[in-house]
Design a protein around this nucleic acid. Structure first.
Lengths: 340, 340
DNA sequence: ACATATCGCTTAATCGTTTTCGTATTTTCA
DNA sequence: TGAAAATACGAAAACGATTAAGCGATATGT
């Protein structure tokens, strides 16, 4: 690799001059600067990131925390799309993305924070993880620039999809279609689940709906089996719902299967709605009515906030950015007229 | 951050001694070593990666090339699962993963190779990209340890899913189910497509099938619209096929919709099969019969080969590793008895 | 008893940058 | 014209680690 020393030799100047010329300092003569830059170009020079990092304490590299029990979250449509957008956003601004090493199986493995500091990440995006683990706590308390997705910590910027508004919009949409008996299979307990569930109840109240307790079920996110079972159970009720809401699109397919097994049809016999708006849901008939999250915007906001925190720590305020989703009108919710 | 200097001050030894103690060299007294290591632990020491890199020319960081026209490939089930497995594999061995910056919108953007060298990647996994771009060529010619996925270069190790065997298995399975009129909508031209298509023809020949030209169609990968159109066209034929193979699972859903729109049912009226084995395909009824690729193994092989190339460049041979998939027997291919 | 090997540690150079502080030269302006 | 100011560059010290070479002191072999 050609270094500044090589360039300085060719140009007959000192390395200091080369450094300044390449970094466009203004205490270098115009002609000299031009000559150095041209030579650097010709010799195929590019900076040694390690040396630069060592000297400047800036890596132009951000860590991404992305782990999940079994899979890393990469295999989850929602997170994958957010990461994709985040990647594009920061790369355009000259930053690279490195995964925070979450493997604990090695001897002498470092904590997340240690890993971040060791690698010299300028900041870290906490996208998909167990927010309650002590390691995460240590990380966010450390003061390193950080942005979380879909979770709130004290004094840490967060990007949140608006689950309250989302659920309200979705439920209202379904109500307007004429549904009155609406069941909600919610996901496992989490901040996100809480938001959606309370919004569901509040909106139902405002709409004058009474939701019997038996209409509220739980099924872990993306668990088609349990969603299937709960759907069956709902269908068995004396007065079954006319529409079922699922924790996510994936689960909705589990419910869809249960409905078909009963010989019923969506949306003619019963309506369903998902949440997230994963890609495939728009490509299968009946297309799934769902709350489509704006993953591109979520990723962009995480990236921009993080870089802003890195580059303008004093003037960037720690805040929660809320990103709106919108109801995707598929064919899985029927229009009910005159009933009830 | 606490450095070796700090430790040396506390322990009353030189920095060199600290370095050797922490790196477990054996020209350090047992007791001294123990004392230094304990102190390092207590003081919360961890190495400065940049300094280490600068000195040793090793980063314990591998680049991953992962870009696609519109999306980065992260949003593609197949690649996401491979990446996930790759990530787990290398992280367990103490390596981190950084995306090779593919953004070209910045002034002074570096080529892939320059970026890799600048960042000091120990190696690079070329997973999802346009293999024919000059930049990729430059990268693989550079001699940097590299492994490609699903593409062959001279003198570069590759991990390939066995598309020839896969297509043979899939077609043979369908044949054994009694199908004789089998159409194949293949993907856009690429090495992968070539393999599958030629395997399709060869296997068909061996099975004694005659495939009319009109049974062979093209639809870009993951394009449900075109898959839908071509399916319609196939159904309109004088003697329509009894089974249609699609470029991938996603496309298969496009075909599935077309079939349903015609009032036909899968698999009763017509059978379909996909390729890849994306997760959702196992959760929708009828579950899709498809060739399920072993993404976990693919990612693992890429990671292990890459690290082997990095750590034992002399003794690791450049080779092509073939990973087998297997037919996933869903409900989308019917049993035909006594017909034809 | 004398040369030699071993042990445990230090010194100092080095990796490729950045940046502070000089300094020599030129320009500016009263 | 002469002093002050601006300009253009260089020397050298860092950043935090690694590692070859060296050096006393003790142990070993003959």
């Amino acid at each position: 690799m050609v270094s500044m020393k090589d360039i300085s030799a060719v140009c007959g100047v000192s390395v200091a001059t080369v450094s300044k010329a390449l970094n466009d300092h203004n205490d270098i003569g115009k002609e000299t600067k031009r000559r150095i830059r041209r030579t650097a170009e010709e010799m195929g020079y590019f900076p040694n990131t390690a040396a630069k990092m060592l000297k400047t304490n800036r890596s132009y590299n951000v860590g991404v925390l992305f782990n999940h029990e079994d899979y890393s979250g990469l295999t989850h449509d929602y997170y994958a799309f957010v990461l994709d957008s985040l990647k594009n956003t920061v790369e355009e601004k000259g930053y690279d993305i490195t995964f925070v090493n979450t493997s604990k199986r090695r001897a002498g493995a470092m904590s997340y924070l240690e890993h971040c500091k060791s690698r010299g990440f300028d900041g870290v995006a906490i996208v998909c993880t167990d927010f309650y683990s002590p390691e995460i706590l240590q990380l966010v308390m450390s003061g390193i620039p950080a942005v979380t997705l879909d979770h709130l910590f004290n004094n840490v910027s967060a990007v949140m999809s608006n689950n309250v508004q989302g659920m309200q919009d979705l439920l209202t949409y379904i109500y307007k279609k004429g549904h009155r008996r609406i069941a909600y299979i919610h996901g496992a307990d989490s901040a996100v689940t809480q938001s959606r569930l309370s919004s569901f109840y509040r909106t139902a109240g405002q709409l004058g709906l009474t939701i019997p307790d038996e209409y509220i079920r739980m099924s872990p996110y993306r668990d088609t089996k349990v969603a299937h079972r709960e759907t069956m159970s709902l269908l068995d009720l004396e007065t079954p719902p006319t529409c079922i809401l699922y924790p996510d699109d994936f689960s909705a397919f589990g419910g869809f299967n249960a409905i078909q097994e009963r010989g019923m049809r969506v949306p003619d016999d019963i309506s369903i709605a998902g949440y997230d708006g994963i890609r495939i849901a728009r490509h299968i008939e009946p297309t799934l009515t769902t709350l489509r999250q704006d993953t591109a915007e979520l990723g962009r906001q995480v990236g921009e906030k993080l870089i802003s925190l890195i580059e303008h720590p004093k003037t960037t305020l720690v805040e929660t950015i809320v990103v709106e989703g919108h109801v995707f009108e598929g064919n899985s919710v029927s229009e009910i007229r005159g009933k009830e």
